[in-house]
Design a protein around this nucleic acid. Structure first.
Lengths: 205, 205
DNA sequence: ACCTGAACACCGTTCAAGT
DNA sequence: ACCTGAACACCGTTCAAGT
């Protein structure tokens, strides 16, 4: 039976693209559970494959988590860009405010995924340049807004780097504290809450 | 041999205060290693006791980690109070700045311990009221400073709560990003760096 | 090439026993 | 009371084998 062979192959080998299937399954698990429950064995179980098969595509669990984090940064970048597109003709203050709202909303909508992105240090040995590049893209996105505000003399005249990190610290810090429930935010009230938190910062810009 | 009995007891039972010894051993491990390496079995090994002995004193690993986190908050509170004592006659801006520096310095000096305090949510089921109380004490400490600034009309006239969370977000966010190496801070340059990051916020207060 | 089975050294936790 | 031993169900990873 020559025709049954590819079928059987599919049933055992299961995939043309196991690599992406694993990342997708991991993200799916993150959407319903905690970041701690995301194990190599659980992910492969979800895909219906022996847990050893993971090692064909990823050097270790950290490499798989890095791919998951990369996907998270891609989604975050899209969300941030979308938020800026909504305030195209607004001043730099409004744009920065929109950015902060979108950032925190992303973290609260994808808490476990966000924890993978910012929880452990995944790229300690510099194995994942793509991950580093995506982080850099997020940095640049903020940097452009800060640069515009400085150039238009609407923001405080300070090195862009400082303002970018200050903004990022504020957004990430608020998101983190909300995720560990040190700050209690109702999802529907994220935007006004973030605006309040960011207000003194923006006033000081 | 009646005299050998208490001795033997000490050699096997090993402690009058196993509870505190476990917490101390855990903190000691955190001072040299990562937060992930801190396991129940490793801690008990360090104390020289069977790992099952832990369950005499703590309901589970989370309860032990909560005790470790509590100790961390006590140390953090002392560090924050000490920093305020150093700027007793200064204006509220300077005092808030000192607070931020001390906060970030604590996180960078005790990275693994800080991660236990702010990494996972330990008190999800409200089992550790002491932990919650210590967090509250930290909140109040910041709140008092913000309240003073508002009352003296040196800060923006907004609800204290907002300013406290904004400050905490900024300090915690900066510390977190530094710990995952998204921001690169040399330990000796923490203070000037934090001052720069906090500057626009304080200007806006 | 791609996947699996058995095994190893870990982990937190439970149960029943030892002193 | 306080601690231990053996066992259980997990985990990531290695080695050798299966198709």
């Amino acid at each position: 039976m020559a025709t049954s062979r590819p079928r059987k192959k599919r049933e055992t080998y299961h995939h043309g693209d196991l690599s992406n299937a694993l990342v997708a399954a991991a993200i799916d698990l993150l959407s319903t559970g905690d970041a701690e429950q995301l194990t190599l064995r659980e992910i492969s179980r979800r895909v219906g494959v022996n847990h050893r098969a993971v090692y064909r595509h990823f050097a270790d669990l950290t490499a798989l988590l890095a791919a998951v984090a990369e996907q998270g940064y891609r989604q975050l970048l899209i969300a941030l860009e979308a938020s800026l597109a909504g305030v195209k003709r607004a001043g730099p203050e409004k744009r920065v405010e929109a950015l902060a709202c979108a950032y925190v909303a992303f973290a609260l909508d994808n808490p476990a995924h966000y924890r993978i992105m910012f929880g452990r240090r995944l790229n300690e040995d510099g194995r994942f340049p793509v991950l580093e590049d995506l982080v850099q893209q997020a940095y640049v996105l903020i940097d452009v807004e800060m640069g515009a505000g400085i150039e238009q003399r609407r923001f405080i005249q300070r090195p862009r780097r400082e303002l970018v990190f200050a903004f990022w610290s504020l957004a990430h810090g608020f998101a983190s504290l909300a995720l560990v429930a040190r700050i209690n935010v109702k999802r529907t009230l994220v935007e006004p809450y973030v605006r309040q938190i960011v207000a003194p910062f923006i006033t000081g810009l």
